[in-house]
C-alpha cells in the first residue's frame, strides 16, 4: 500500500502529540472536583434502589435513559434501510456443527446470567444494559448459527423494539394523575416502577442491538 500523505501524517501526528501533552498538563494538577456524589448517597433511601448507578440511571436522571432508548431506536431505522439481511431471512451460511452445538450449550447459561444481572441491578452493579448486552450477543449467535431466530416474526420484533420507549413514557406520564412532574415516581412505588422499566428496557435494547448485529452481511464473516 502506497503512502502519499507522509508529510500530512507527520503533521497530524505532531498536532496530536502536542494536544496530548497539553491535555496532560491541563488535567494532571486538577484535584477532586465537587460533584453530586454525596447528594446521591444522601438521597439513596428515597430512590427505591440500593445501587447508586441504577438510581442515577432510572430515577434521578431517567430522562437521559429514556432519550438514550430513543437514540438507539432512531439508529435502527437507517440500519434497517442499509441492512444486508431482513431479520426474517437471517439464516446460517456457515452451517457447522460446532457453532450450533456451542450455541445450544451457551444459550441457556446466557439467559440465566442475564436474568441474574437484571435482578441484581437494584442492589449491586448490573442492570438493564449489562443484561441486554449479553442477550444481544446471544441473539447474534443464534442469527448466525442457523437456529430458528426467536425474533423471526417481524411484528413481534418491532413491538419489542419500541416496548422500552412506550412503557417508559407511559410510566413517566402516569404520574401526571398526581400533581407531579414527568418521570417523578412516588416513593412507595419507586422499586416496582424501576424494575418494570428495567425489564422492558432489557427486552427493547436486546431486540435493537440484535437487529444491529443481524444487519451485517454474512458472506464477509468467516468463522
Amino acid at each position: 500500500m502506497t503512502k502519499p500523505l507522509v508529510n500530512g501524517q507527520r503533521f497530524t501526528a505532531l498536532i496530536c502529540l502536542a494536544m496530548c501533552i497539553i491535555s496532560l498538563i491541563v488535567v494532571i494538577p486538577v484535584g477532586p472536583s465537587l460533584s453530586a456524589a454525596s447528594l446521591i448517597q444522601e438521597h439513596l433511601n428515597n430512590s427505591g434502589v440500593e445501587n447508586p448507578v441504577t438510581a442515577v440511571l432510572l430515577n434521578y436522571r431517567s430522562i437521559d435513559t429514556l432519550l438514550e432508548l430513543a437514540v438507539i431506536y432512531v439508529a435502527v431505522l437507517p440500519v434497517c434501510a442499509l441492512s444486508f439481511n431482513q431479520i426474517t431471512t437471517v439464516r446460517c451460511v456457515h452451517s457447522d456443527t460446532v457453532l450450533r452445538g456451542l450455541t445450544s450449550v451457551v444459550a441457556p447459561a446466557t439467559i440465566i446470567t442475564a436474568i441474574y444481572l437484571l435482578y441484581n441491578g437494584t442492589r449491586l452493579p448490573g442492570g438493564a444494559f449489562q443484561a441486554a448486552a449479553l442477550l444481544a450477543g446471544l441473539s447474534g449467535l443464534i442469527a448466525f448459527s442457523g437456529f430458528r431466530h426467536f425474533l423471526k416474526q417481524k411484528a413481534l420484533n418491532n413491538t419489542l423494539m419500541v416496548s422500552g420507549i412506550l412503557i417508559f413514557t407511559a410510566i413517566g406520564f402516569s404520574h401526571y394523575i398526581l400533581p407531579a412532574s414527568f418521570l417523578a415516581y412516588p416513593r412507595e412505588y419507586a422499586t416496582t416502577v424501576i424494575i418494570t422499566i428495567e425489564i422492558f428496557a432489557t427486552v427493547s435494547i436486546t431486540a435493537i442491538l440484535g437487529r444491529y448485529i443481524s444487519a451485517l452481511p454474512q458472506a464477509r464473516i468467516s468463522l
Binding site: 446521591i40 448507578v53 438510581a55 442515577v56 438514550e68 437514540v71 442499509l82 442491538l209 444491529y212 451485517l216
Partner: peptide
C-alpha cells in the same frame, strides 16, 4: 464510595457508541 454519575454516563455512552459503530460499519460496507 465512587461517584455514580460518571458510571451512568459511561454505561449510556457505550450503548450509544455501539449504535453509531453499527451504523458506520453498515455505511462503510
Amino acid at each position: 464510595p465512587p461517584d455514580a454519575i460518571p458510571h451512568a454516563i459511561v454505561l449510556t455512552g457505550i450503548v450509544v457508541s455501539v449504535a453509531t459503530s453499527a451504523l458506520a460499519i453498515l455505511l462503510a460496507l
